[in-house]
């Protein structure tokens, strides 16, 4: 009797990711987001015409990890920089990758106007409710009562205002073609996130305007929790405030099955 052993590859690094080890803290979900985006770029076969725009934040070195062209923006200005690139190179696929401080604080003007103009770019918005890179200050998405190093008694909405729900806010703009929120805290949600990333690129490929996927993310280092506890914290605290859902899906996208 003979047995044949066949070797099957079930998991490997996407073509669009480089072999460079990531500098993110252990358990950080930035890495998952990177991987999903790279997988979709591979699946769409657009690696060679994709240009990424990195933010200032923990993902400042994102350009080291994606095997496609990349630029590095000033803090918050990624949508403006992406606009400049897209206007000169309309047939390229341009995406930004931004944190909550970058997109919703210092870059609020840039993101609103990019969405308002219906700028045909794709935005990945990593909402981890904190400033990761500068070690844990309050972000515009920090939850009420959440302690950070610049809201040491917890975010008091009376003086520090309310967290911003960026997906809901941007979905209101006529220029937006696709605006959704997903989460990275478990396999089911990660699969849903990947589909949304796919649709966000499809939006751009079909010229349907501004697309953004908000990805709820963890920062165990600055939340002061273990990676596992962080995933739980995200599920228990962030999702009630930031519901997962589709806030704007252009009609032409609704037929697409991914």
């Amino acid at each position: 009797m003979e047995t044949t052993l066949s070797v099957q590859i079930v998991y490997q690094r996407p073509r669009s990711l480089t072999a460079v080890p990531m500098h993110y803290c252990p358990g950080c979900t930035h890495g998952i987001a990177h991987r999903l985006i790279a997988e979709v770029i591979d699946e769409l076969g657009i690696r060679e015409r994709t240009i990424g725009v990195a933010p200032v934040g923990c993902s400042v070195f994102a350009y080291n990890y994606f095997d496609c062209d990349f630029v590095e923006a000033a803090h918050g200005r990624a949508p403006a920089m992406a606009t400049g690139i897209k206007r000169l190179l309309p047939d390229r696929v341009v995406f930004t990758y931004q944190g909550d401080g970058d997109l919703a604080s210092i870059g609020m003007g840039e993101i609103i106007h990019a969405a308002g103009r219906g700028e045909n770019i794709t935005v990945f918005f990593i909402n981890n409710a904190i400033y990761g890179m500068t070690s844990g200050q309050m972000a515009p998405t920090t939850l009420p009562g959440q302690k950070t190093t610049s809201s040491p008694q917890g975010r008091d909405v009376e003086t520090m205002g309310y967290p911003l729900r960026m997906a809901e806010l941007l979905a209101n703009l006529d220029g937006a073609g696709y605006v959704v929120r997903r989460s990275l805290h478990d396999p089911k949600n990660i699969r849903m996130a990947k589909k949304a990333i796919r649709l966000a690129f499809e939006t751009q490929l079909r010229g349907l305007g501004f697309a953004m996927v908000e990805l709820l993310s963890t920062c165990s280092t600055n939340w002061g929790l273990s990676p596992l506890e962080s995933l739980r914290w995200l599920e228990e605290h962030m999702i009630p405030y930031y519901p997962i859902g589709d806030f704007k899906v252009a009609e032409a996208l609704q037929a697409i099955k991914v």
Partner: peptide, 8 residues
């Protein structure tokens, strides 16, 4: 004390 949204 206020943490502004940007240096601007």
């Amino acid at each position: 004390f206020l943490q502004a949204e940007s240096e601007v």
